[in-house]
Simulated assay, not measured.
Amino acid sequence: MPRGSVSVEVEASCTAVFNLIHDYGRRLEWDTLLSKACLLDGATEAGVGVRSLCVGTWQGLFLPMETEYVRFEPGRVAAVSLTNNPPFFDHFAATIRQKPHGENRSQVTCIYFFRARPKLLEYLMNQMLRRETQIRLNALRFYFS
């Protein structure tokens, strides 16, 4: 199963970064690769068992990705797993970790795993996902600068 990992340093505390990433009311303020982001089933805040919907922009083919939080430790780590069946994905999961680097600086690392449908797309999709993840984390870093 292909895996990727991307990290950036952010000029903000782990708590501030974590809170912004998982605030779906503010997600589009910084995430330049989404056209829609919301929590599902009446949820008002992220947490274990909560499902979310993120829809890409035209660059991401407007793919809708529904995920469910399977781990949620504020200020430290959150993990999601795909719950719908968007084109080209057989499986997808991601973890976002925050690590303090001083009082108001943190390292944000996104680790993703996926299985493509069809499998022969995995190399290309891994390159695209790595690039998109880097763009997304750079946008997060820019938001805090």
Rank of each mutant, 00 (worst) to 15 (best):
F88V: 15
L34V: 03
K119F: 11
V50W: 07
Y24C: 11
L121S: 01
G42Q: 03
V48L: 07
D31I: 12
V108H: 01
F113L: 05
R115I: 03
Q127A: 13
G60L: 14
N138A: 06
P86E: 02
E45A: 14
A12P: 10
S13V: 03
G56T: 08
K99I: 06
G56S: 03
T57I: 11
L63F: 13
F18I: 03
M65R: 08
G4D: 03
V17D: 09
T15W: 04
A93D: 02
S81V: 14
G56Q: 04
R26V: 05
A139D: 06
A139P: 06
L39I: 15
Q59E: 14
P86D: 07
L34K: 15
E29W: 08
Q134M: 02
C38G: 12
L120E: 05
Y143N: 00
I111A: 13
L61D: 06
G49Q: 05
F72Y: 15
Y69V: 10
E73V: 14
L137R: 07
L28H: 15
T83G: 08
Q134S: 09
F88Q: 10
L33D: 12
I96H: 02
L124T: 10
V48F: 04
F142M: 06
N126R: 12
F18E: 08
R136H: 01
A16Q: 14
Q107C: 06
G49Y: 07
E122T: 09
G42L: 12
F114Q: 09
G4R: 06
L61M: 05
V10D: 04
R117S: 08
F88C: 12
A46Q: 05
A37C: 14
S13L: 07
F62W: 14
L121C: 04
W30E: 01
A16M: 11
M125A: 05
Y24L: 09
N85V: 02
A16G: 09
F89I: 13
P64Q: 00
V50T: 13
E68N: 08
L53W: 04
L121E: 03
H22C: 10
Y112F: 15
W30K: 06
E45T: 15
R117L: 03
M1P: 09
L33S: 11
L61K: 01
R51I: 07
E9Y: 10
A43S: 15
V8G: 03
E68F: 04
E11C: 01
L34F: 12
L20I: 05
A46N: 09
G56N: 06
Y24T: 11
W58T: 10
V48T: 13
R27Q: 09
H101L: 14
V17W: 11
F92L: 12
N126H: 04
M1K: 01
Q134V: 00
S81F: 00
F144R: 00
V6Y: 02
Q98C: 15
F144L: 01
A94I: 02
L28F: 14
M1I: 11
V77M: 06
R136Q: 12
A116H: 09
A37Y: 12
L129R: 04
L140R: 07
S35H: 05
M65P: 02
E66T: 07
G49H: 09
S7W: 00
F89A: 11
T95I: 00
G42E: 10
N126M: 05
Q107L: 05
Q59I: 12
